[in-house]
Amino acid sequence: MLELIDTYWLYFLVGQYPQGPLGGLVLTILLSGAALVLAMPLGLLLGVARVSPYRAISLPVAGLVQVVRAVPLLLVLFWVYFFLPAVTGVKTSQATTMLMVLVVFDSVYLAEIVAAGMRALPKGQLESARSLGLGYGAALRHVVLPQTLRHGLPSIVNQLVSTIKATSLGYIIGLSEVSFIATQINTLVFTQAVEVYLILALTYFILCFGLSRLAFLLERRLQRPTAHLVQAS
């Protein structure tokens, strides 16, 4: 096992970089992080739309969420990678395709997190902001969303974990993420399949479990009793 790690650790970590595009664990992490960051603005927008009292706004978003959650990510990946180039004439790289699809999925899940957080915030917060004369947009920006995002942070970290796991699907369209690299290593070495895939599993475990623990600790910190917050009946 140790010589295996010794020989291939760099390949596992960064793929063929710099002699080729970036791959491996670093690609997995960068793609996931980038997807989540890029999805935030859209997720915020969709989340706010989701709780809008105007059904003309909230229903289409609810519909979009339902549709995105009803189809496998892999299917969307296939659509974008195989079908879209025929329509647009532009063939996107595996990494770009993966990123686009991840952003779509992440923004939908982030929208749900934002919407849930907004619904959970006491009504009085928005009311007092509006009572001071702040418009709805200003009230969202300065009072509602800062609190929503703070309370939603554990869920957002969990969404990052989901995204990391989702990048593995890039394997199927030939993206050189870490599972793909592991299989390449397995093909080269051939006789140590168990070791290779155990290392792969362990890598994901450390990364994802570590982040989940972070989310858990964040959640605990947020629930620390806040003194003197008297709730009126």
């Binding site: 917060q125 009311e127 007092s128 509006r130 009572s131 004369g133 702040l134 800062p146 917050l229 008297v230």
Partner: peptide, 20 residues
């Protein structure tokens, strides 16, 4: 409406201070 509310001070039963 916002201008109207800006000209009226409202104090709530549950204070509703902004915790952040």
């Amino acid at each position: 409406v916002n201008a109207l509310r800006a000209g009226i001070g409202f104090v709530f039963q549950s204070f509703n201070l902004f915790p952040h």
